[in-house]
């Protein structure tokens, strides 16, 4: 368990005209997948690096689980926080197994335990331990390297993970699968993740909590759906392309609409003739299903029971502004 709280955090680089991080206050609950989104130079990476104290702060305070990090030994702190960086960050002179084992070795685990942990971690990131243990990073593809980077960050079972544009260097297909695996990993481990990206689609598909930054301050915080449907400023609207109706459809779930739907059932109408979708499915997928089948309604299932029937008008109203 690990919650993070920023309170008036300020970072000013020497000689810079304005603060890189200018009074950021933000609370990230334990187990949350928080994404910092913004254009380059907005301070998102700097803010991320203040958490494990790679970046000293010039004002404010940062608490992890209610404890001010200023009072903690930065070395001990960093060993408890997983860190995945841009450009992979594997050590080229160490094998895959040695890279993954860096933090356990720093913590003084015995070799048997380290070796077992390495195998388990490689399996977790879908790499065959036998095949990959003894390879060097230069012998891996970009996607494989990033998997090892994630395994390394998870090695000492951290309750918090900092990820700085971890998938920037891999192609779109690999990126999508790494994103899904990261999400699954987070659900499985319950770790709190702070994730930096400038890729809007990536941010929308990963975030529980989306934090839009600009010029060192937070422009808006909310769920992806909240930010797309109610952007607080023109900057946010433009950044996330909130005018794109399809994009808005993609972040709202059927369940969210079903709760407010005018009528809740009508299975008598045309049983079995309309698409049946789970409440967790996005409106965009529902629209797709309707277009595909020619139906003008979908049946929403919640925990195995029919929860609502929604029609095209409901969808239209949901994205109309």
């Amino acid at each position: 368990m690990a919650s993070i709280r920023f309170e008036g955090v300020r970072v000013v680089y020497p000689g810079a005209a304005r603060a890189a991080v200018d009074g950021v206050t933000l609370a990230i609950p334990s187990g949350c997948f928080a994404v910092l989104l913004g254009p380059s130079g907005c301070g998102k990476t700097t803010l991320l690096r203040t958490v494990n104290r790679l970046q000293p702060i010039d004002g404010g305070r940062i608490e992890i689980d209610g404890r001010d990090t200023a009072g903690l030994d930065p070395i001990v702190l960093r060993r408890r926080i997983g860190y995945v960086i841009q450009a992979v960050g594997l050590f080229p002179h160490l094998t895959v197994a040695q890279n993954v084992a860096v933090v356990p070795n720093l913590l003084g685990w015995d070799s048997q335990r380290v070796s077992e942990r390495v195998d388990a971690l490689l399996a977790q990131v879908s790499l065959d331990a036998q095949a990959f243990r003894d390879r060097y990073p230069s012998q891996l593809s970009g996607g494989q390297q990033q998997r090892v980077g994630i395994a390394r960050a998870l090695a000492a079972e951290p309750s918090m993970l900092l990820m700085d544009e971890p998938f920037g260097a891999v192609d779109a297909i690999v990126r999508a699968s790494l994103q899904q695996e990261t999400l699954a990993l987070q659900r499985r481990t319950g770790a709190t993740i702070l994730f930096v990206t400038h890729d809007v689609d990536e941010a929308l598909s990963l975030a529980d909590m989306l934090v839009v930054m600009r010029d060192g301050h937070i422009e808006q915080t909310g769920t992806p759906a909240e930010i797309l449907t109610h952007p607080a400023t023109p900057f946010v609207a433009e950044l996330v392309d909130a005018d794109d109706a399809l994009r808005r459809l993609s972040v709202i779930t059927l369940g969210a609409l079903a709760a407010n739907a005018a009528y809740t059932t009508s299975s008598a109408l045309e049983p079995g003739t309309i698409p049946t979708l789970d409440a967790g499915v996005s409106l965009r997928a529902a629209l797709g299903a309707m277009l595909e089948t020619g139906a003008s309604r979908v049946c929403v299932m919640h925990e195995g029971r029919e929860a609502a029937v929604l029609d095209l008008d409901t969808l239209r109203n949901a994205v109309r502004r």
Partner: peptide, 12 residues
């Protein structure tokens, strides 16, 4: 970046 990774993992 290599120094950064090393520090970030908690090396003295």
């Amino acid at each position: 970046w290599m120094i950064d990774a090393a520090q970030g993992l908690g090396m003295t």
